[in-house]
Write a protein that binds this DNA or RNA. Structure first.
Lengths: 219, 219
DNA sequence: TCAAAAACAGGACAGTCATCCTGTTTTACA
DNA sequence: TGTAAAACAGGATGACTGTCCTGTTTTTGA
């Protein structure tokens, strides 16, 4: 804990391997992709080793067990993905509703041009792992929680600006995340993004409530 | 195809085993439960045999492969579960909105007294299997489709009775199913049903739109 | 009653799985 | 430069996995 080593832990030279971050990053990349595409149980350590071009010794050095690897994927990658595609955009948006709408539309557009739907990384892993192991479950629940928290906070910010007076922040956030997650489930199963559009339009119609049409924009 | 056997295929005597439906039913029971609780890949054939009290030969006689077993669970059990807990109640309900609300509330209440959340059977299997195999995917997508269809049909029935004029049946159905599925995902991950209640109340508030409060009930 | 088919028993099989082991190489730091 | 730790190589291992096979029992239909 205490730094008694003459107080100069400066790095002398950077690594000069071809891989700037080492093999840990490469393994995480491959594992994230595989867990997303095929799931945890369907992705074998052997497959991951082969695809990452990494030997068993190397993999085991960085991640002692498969569970440790998955936990790292969840905490480092899945959490970051939710932060990047949802939390940050909502924070930046003009309002909570506009943020939710924009993310919904952006994801739908991206999937449409991509041609196939692999589903939400958080949801995919949550379904497979949250009942299998308490550590998995808690890590995944925390991400869901932060996701809803960010949307609820945005509603509260809107309310401090005089808007959204009749909206319950927690309930709105729960509805937004649930609708997105469920719509992605169906889109993945049907391999069709139309249900995403349907949900977005139903949300806009229904949840925007009495406002018939907004002709003025926020500064 | 043609019945040329003197046209008398009458059954002579019923089975007199202790199990009225035979072992096929027992295997399906155990598999349905296991796939729901632990998932497809995490449930081994050996486990299923042991829990069902069935030998390998018997299991293989009724279901040649694990995939065949899972397909049977999906088509016979999961579809029936959706029909029983969602489609039939919605059809019986006074209106589409009331039906959706009632099912949502009933499931939430049931889970609250049950103490833990295992999630929606359809969603659980859909996430794990829909990308793994086209046969799985199509079977699961059909169930989702029938589910939404039933809700959309109910909206159309409401509309023929003069109600729900401004509601798009398909979009409303997509929103209802997506919200439920997503809420169940979160409830399962958090092992907490509060998010289900939040989603239900947000749906009631938002989607019911201009109607502030309904003081009169349908006959 | 009798043959054929279905239902079931129980183990064999080859393959895969995650993990762990002992070496060797590379890096960090004094 | 010397040394200890970290990073990596590559195979060994034993426990499962799903499937299939050969018998035996029970049921079916005429």
């Amino acid at each position: 804990m205490s730094a008694e080593t003459t107080a100069r832990p400066k790095a002398r030279a950077k690594k000069r391997t071809n891989d700037p971050e080492g093999m840990r990053k490469k393994v995480l990349d491959v594992a994230e992709e595989a867990f997303q595409a095929r799931g945890y149980h369907a992705s074998s350590m052997g497959d991951l080793m082969a695809t990452a071009g990494v030997t068993g010794g190397a993999l085991h050095h960085h991640f002692a067990t498969k569970k440790a690897l998955a936990l790292a994927v969840i905490e480092e990658r899945v959490a970051a993905a939710v932060e990047e595609t949802w939390i940050a955009p909502v924070r930046r948006a003009g309002s909570a509703r506009e943020g939710v709408r924009a993310v919904f539309a952006a994801v739908a557009a991206e999937l449409e041009q991509q041609g196939f739907v692999r589903g939400c990384p958080l949801n995919n892993l949550a379904h497979e792992l949250s009942l299998a192991d308490p550590d998995f479950r808690i890590a995944l629940a925390d991400i869901f929680s932060a996701w809803r928290q960010a949307i609820a906070d945005k509603i509260r910010a809107d309310q401090q600006a005089g808007r959204e007076q009749g909206t319950d922040p927690q309930r709105f956030a729960a509805l937004a995340v649930a609708t997105y997650s469920g719509a992605m489930s169906m889109a993945k199963t049907a391999q069709d993004t139309r249900v995403l559009r349907d949900c977005l339009m139903a949300l806009e119609q229904g949840v925007t409530r009495r406002r018939r049409r907004i002709l003025h924009k926020a500064p």
